[in-house]
Structures are given as C-alpha cells and as structure tokens.
C-alpha cells in the first residue's frame, strides 16, 4: 500500500514534461491537480503500472465552481461568464488497497476534456451525466448524449448554478 508521497514521486519521475500540482495539505483528502489535456495518459499509466495498479474508478464528479463574473443577460437574469469547472476522479486499487484523488480544472465557457471510458468502462455513464447536467464535452466518448433529462430538453444544463427553469415543457407547466 503506497502513501500519497510515494505515488506523487512515481508520477513526477515518469512524467517529467507534465506540470502537476500536489496538495498533500488538503485536510481530509490530499489530491493532485493534472492539466486537462493530459488526463488520459496519466490515467492509463496509473491503471497499468505494476506498483500502483489502480484498477477501479470509484467516482467521477463534475463541480461548477461559480467563480467568474456575474453579469445580466438580455432577459434580466443573472448569468455567469468566465470562471472554471472542475472534475474530480476518485480511484482505488483493490489489490494494493490505496486510493487517490485527481482534480482537473476546465474553462467554464467551453469545457472539454478527454474521456477515460477506454481505460475504465465505469466512467461511461458518469461522463454522460456530467455532460447532461453541466455541459462538459468529453472527447472520444463512445456515446455522448443526455442520460437523465429528456432527449429533447433544450433549456440548458440544470446543475449549473445560473440555470433558469423554463415555463412550459411540451404543454405541461413546470413551476409549482
């Protein structure tokens, strides 16, 4: 079972061209910040390396950081421009019993990252849900479409913090 420092050392030695940010001081869960365009190479290494062997992806969560500029759009509603969104990957090795948390930061206006579905099949529906509820685009995903909302929902991505409810959907009144 490897500690967070040992895993960080292994990553630094194998990927000297990638700029990682290590956060061992985060109080409850130390995490590693990985640049968005290198996430799939890093994850492939994490899964296949003999000493790390992270064979199971536990969770993939998307978060809307809501740290941009609040402006008013043409209907008078408050929306956000700029800012970031993050994705957190929790992974675990069943053989060695160690866990790791990786964070990726994306641009909020046009979020896009490579998909890890080819590495862990578990990520398939998690990424579809992140696309459905946040609007994050996953490159090379085998089947990226809405999963929880209706397929013809054209009013945006609901879990963003500046989402506005429509008045009617197919003849049914949506608010109370």
């Amino acid at each position: 079972m490897k500690s967070f420092e040992e895993i960080s050392e292994l990553l630094k030695n194998n990927f000297s061209d990638i700029h990682f940010e290590f956060h061992p001081e985060a109080k409850f869960e130390p995490y590693i910040l990985v640049p968005a365009n290198k996430i799939d190479t890093v994850c492939l290494f994490l899964r296949d390396n003999n000493e790390l062997y992270f064979d199971s992806l536990i969770n993939l969560s998307a978060v809307d950081d809501f740290n941009g500029n609040k402006i008013k759009d043409d209907k008078g509603n408050e929306i956000m421009q700029g800012g970031t969104m993050s994705i957190y990957y929790h992974m675990e090795s069943i053989k060695f019993r160690h866990k790791l948390l990786i964070k990726v930061i994306l641009d909020r206006d046009n979020p896009s990252v490579n998909s890890v579905t080819s590495i862990w099949n578990c990520a398939n529906w998690h990424e579809r849900e992140a696309f459905d509820l946040f609007g994050i685009n996953f490159n090379n995903h085998p089947d990226l479409r809405r999963i929880l909302m209706p397929y013809d929902w054209e009013f945006g991505h609901p879990l963003r913090k500046d989402y506005q409810n429509p008045e009617f959907y197919q003849g049914m009144k949506v608010p109370y």
Partner: peptide, 30 residues
Amino acid sequence: GHIYSRVENPRGELGYFIISDGSTSPFRVK
C-alpha cells in the same frame, strides 16, 4: 473542504462526495 465517505449498502458501495464552502448548506453533493 471536501470529503468522500462511503458505506456498504445492500446494493453495493454508496458514496457521497461532499464539498463544503463554509456556509450552512453544502456547495455540492455528488
């Protein structure tokens, strides 16, 4: 801060990823 807590439910592993921003409501619960 943020934390991931998990329990063994009858159907499998149920996990909550809770992000707190210091206020009385969670910032994000996945």
